[in-house]
Design a protein around this nucleic acid. Structure first.
Length: 350
DNA sequence: ATCCCGTCGG
DNA sequence: CCGACGGGAT
């Protein structure tokens, strides 16, 4: 039996009885799908019932005020869903004679209806053969077929889309789409799914290769770190004090200047800044701010502040990484862009 | 504290 | 492409 057939068979036995199943009314399906975006069935169910009772048709919905809609939406979160629904309902009332679209290409035009929702409504209401791709489907497909491409990468989306669309081809679109999502929600759950009871365990890549808890793959949301680099330019007798950057940070093996990193701009936490300054350059040193630069990396935003120093002594962890070099020698060394920019814009050359 | 999740707008 | 958008489950 094919994967699809097994999934549908499982669905017919295990599906929950939900009020938006077994209707082909695109308005009712739209109502349920928007409510269920980013929302669990148990939480959305009472809202769906309230909305449908209050607004049995899209025209009823369109005639509501924004306040009424948002009041009914209260507690469900992502309130732009409610606002977009009202906009869409009014558009359908005024420009589509109150008839809710059923074709994917028309649905996707509607505010608040993206790829997933357009596929859901078109398949459930009109059996259009568009594969749904929600979090459940990503999970089921990545595990069963062993797709190790991240689901939130451009390449991954393309790959999953093609696979999902191929799988639906010979199926009853509405039935199969509902089946695979329900299967993901109840059986192939994100955390500790009951693989021992799974009807497709023998063909499942993740089960066979012990990858269930690792799939689907998702790219880490890289949140940008903000850092403050305070560089000290020590220029004496034609020699420049430079620092070779070490492992475990940006610009590994490149050369910059002695650096004090602070958690805030130096003017906002002068105590921390001055303490570190004195430790490294002695009590009596004097600073003069030079140029500032904002440097953007993929994963970090670095605010760079250069300083000139006077009357300093060098205590700077006099490890092998810090040394005096001539300007000519420094020009031959690899440097981060931020350092080269500084040298050029200040016309520091021989 | 961390994860989950569709669409929009910048 | 990426952050904003909410609430619930774990």
């Amino acid at each position: 039996m094919s994967f699809q057939t097994e999934i549908v068979k499982w669905y017919l036995i295990n599906k929950r009885a939900l009020p938006w199943r077994d209707t082909t009314d695109a308005y009712v399906i739209w109502l349920s799908e928007i409510i269920l975006q980013q929302t669990r069935v148990e939480q959305g169910l009472p809202y769906f019932n309230n909305f449908l009772q209050s607004y049995p048709t899209v025209t009823d919905f369109a005639n509501a005020t924004e306040t009424q809609i948002l009041k009914l939406w209260q507690g469900l979160g992502y309130y732009s869903r409610g606002r977009n629904m009202l906009f869409t309902a009014r558009q359908i009332r005024d420009s589509h004679a109150g008839i809710f679209p059923r074709k994917y290409d028309d649905l996707i035009q509607l505010k608040g209806v993206g790829e997933y929702t357009a596929a859901a409504i078109s398949s459930f209401s009109a059996n259009e053969s568009k594969a749904v791709l929600d979090g459940n489907v990503f999970r089921v497909l990545s595990r069963y077929f062993g797709i190790e491409t991240a689901i939130n990468s451009t390449e991954g989306k393309k790959q999953f889309n093609e696979l999902a669309q191929a799988l639906i081809e010979d199926q009853q679109p509405s039935l199969y789409n509902q089946a695979i999502m329900e299967f993901g929600a109840l059986q192939c759950k994100p955390k500790s799914p009951d693989c021992g009871n799974c009807p497709v365990q023998s063909g499942c890549y993740a089960k066979t290769n012990d990858r269930v808890s690792l799939l689907p793959l998702k790219l880490k949301k890289l949140k940008k770190r903000t850092r403050y680099f305070n560089y000290f330019v020590c220029f004496d007798g034609g020699q420049l004090l430079v620092n070779k950057r070490t492992a475990g940070d940006v610009w590994q093996e490149l050369y910059d200047f002695p650096l004090i990193e602070t958690e805030n701009p130096y003017l906002e936490d002068q105590e921390q800044f001055l303490t570190k300054l004195k430790t490294n350059f002695g009590e009596a040193c004097i600073i003069a701010p030079l140029a500032k630069q904002k440097h953007l990396l993929t994963h970090q935003t670095i605010y760079v502040q250069f300083f000139a120093l006077d009357n300093y002594i060098i205590n700077f962890n006099m490890n092998a990484e810090i040394k005096w070099v001539s300007l000519a020698a420094f020009e031959e060394l690899p440097q981060p862009k931020v350092i080269t920019n500084f040298m050029i814009s200040n016309s520091i050359k021989q």
